[in-house]
Design a protein around this nucleic acid. Structure first.
Length: 301
DNA sequence: CCCCAGGCTTTAC
DNA sequence: GTAAAGCCTGGG
C-alpha cells in the first residue's frame, strides 16, 4: 500500500479493507482500546501507537518510516489483498453477508509469545476480562516505557513470567489458567519449544507442537497459528463459530473436530479468514447471552 | 482411536 | 443460578 511520511507518523494512503473497529474488535487482539474520538491506541511489539481513520487514509500516529517499514506494515498485513480474499469467499451466500458485515477486517501478525499467553488466558473467559487480566500482567511484570508523554507497559517476557510463582500470576485474575501460563512460560524459557521455529513448519506440524503447551488445546492452537503467523488454513472453532456453522451449514449436532474438518474442506486455504468474518458476524448479530444460543441449539433438533 | 462428564477462576447479568 | 474465544483428567 502507498504511504506518506508526515510529522510524528505515517499516512497509509487510500487504505482498502481497513476498518479500525473491524480489525480491533473482531477478537484477535486484546491490547487495543477505542478512544472517545474513535481512534484506537495500543501496544504491540514493545511499541505504542495511535491509529485513526482520516477519510480514505489511515493515520499511524507516533511512528516513523523506519519503524513502519520494519514493523507496522507487517503487523497490519498491508501486503495482502483482502479484496481478492473477500471476493473468493463471497461466492458462498452466508459468507457474502459476513464479509459485507466485517468488510474491513485484517488478520494481524502478532507476536507469537504474546498470542500464546493471551489465548491460554482466553479459555472459558470473556473478552473484557481477558483484556483486564492481560493488562494487569503487563502492568505488573512488563517493562514500563514512555512515548509522547504516554506511559505504557510492554508484554512481559518468558524469562520474567517463568521466574514467578503461580500465585503471582493468579493475582492478575488468571484463575485456574495461572498454572498453564506459568507452565507455558517455562516451556519457552527452558528452550523446550522454540516459537520462532514454527514459522518453518507446515501448519499441521506447528499445530502439534503448540498442542504440547499446557493450556493449549485445538482451539487455542488454531488462534495462535492464525493470529500470529497468518496461517489462513487454520480454523479456530469456539462456541460462536460452532453455533454459526451448525446453524448455516451443518444443520445438526456435531463435535468441534467435525466442524473444523468441514470448514477446512469447504473453505480450504482461506478457512482462517472465513472464520474471522463468521465470528465477527455471529457475535455481533446473534446477540449475547442465552437468547440466541437457546434458539440456535434447538432449532434443528 | 473417538467421545463424554465434571471441575476449574472470576465476573456480570 | 448461569454463561463466558476451553483445557485437563479420567473413564467407557
Amino acid at each position: 500500500m502507498d504511504y506518506k511520511v508526515i510529522e510524528n507518523g505515517i499516512l497509509v494512503k487510500n487504505a482498502r479493507d481497513f476498518e479500525l473497529e473491524h480489525i480491533f474488535e473482531c477478537g484477535q487482539c486484546f491490547r487495543w482500546n477505542k478512544m472517545a474520538d474513535g481512534s484506537y491506541r495500543g501496544v504491540a511489539g514493545g511499541k505504542f501507537l495511535r491509529v485513526e481513520k482520516r477519510g480514505g487514509d489511515i493515520l499511524l500516529d507516533g511512528t516513523d518510516e523506519k519503524e513502519f517499514r520494519e514493523y507496522w506494515a507487517r503487523y497490519f498485513d498491508l501486503e495482502r489483498d483482502y479484496g481478492q480474499i473477500k471476493q473468493a469467499l463471497s461466492r458462498d451466500p452466508v459468507l457474502e453477508r459476513a464479509v459485507e458485515f466485517g468488510n474491513g477486517i485484517r488478520i494481524l501478525k502478532q507476536d507469537a509469545w504474546e498470542t500464546l499467553i493471551s489465548f491460554i488466558i482466553s479459555a472459558n473467559n470473556s473478552i473484557p476480562r481477558i483484556k483486564a487480566t492481560i493488562e494487569r500482567l503487563c502492568r505488573s511484570f512488563g517493562s514500563r516505557r514512555e512515548a509522547k508523554g504516554e506511559t505504557f507497559f510492554v508484554f512481559p517476557t518468558p524469562e520474567r513470567l517463568s521466574r514467578l510463582d503461580e500465585q503471582d500470576i493468579r493475582s492478575c485474575g488468571c484463575g485456574f489458567r495461572a498454572r498453564y501460563v506459568l507452565g507455558a512460560a517455562r516451556t519457552v524459557e527452558e528452550g523446550r519449544v522454540d516459537l520462532a521455529s514454527l514459522e518453518l513448519m507446515s501448519t499441521a506440524e506447528a499445530r502439534s507442537v503448540l498442542l504440547s503447551f499446557p493450556g493449549v488445546g485445538p482451539k487455542v492452537a488454531d488462534c495462535i497459528l492464525l493470529f500470529s503467523m497468518a496461517r489462513f488454513d487454520a480454523f479456530p472453532v469456539d462456541v460462536w463459530v460452532k453455533r454459526v456453522m451448525k446453524h448455516y451449514y451443518l444443520k445438526r449436532d456435531t463435535t468441534l473436530a467435525e466442524v473444523r474438518r468441514y470448514a477446512e474442506e469447504r473453505f480450504g486455504p482461506l478457512a482462517g479468514a472465513a472464520q474471522q468474518y463468521l465470528f465477527y458476524y455471529a457475535r455481533s448479530t446473534m446477540g449475547r447471552g442465552p437468547g440466541w444460543y437457546k434458539i440456535a441449539e434447538n432449532v434443528h433438533k
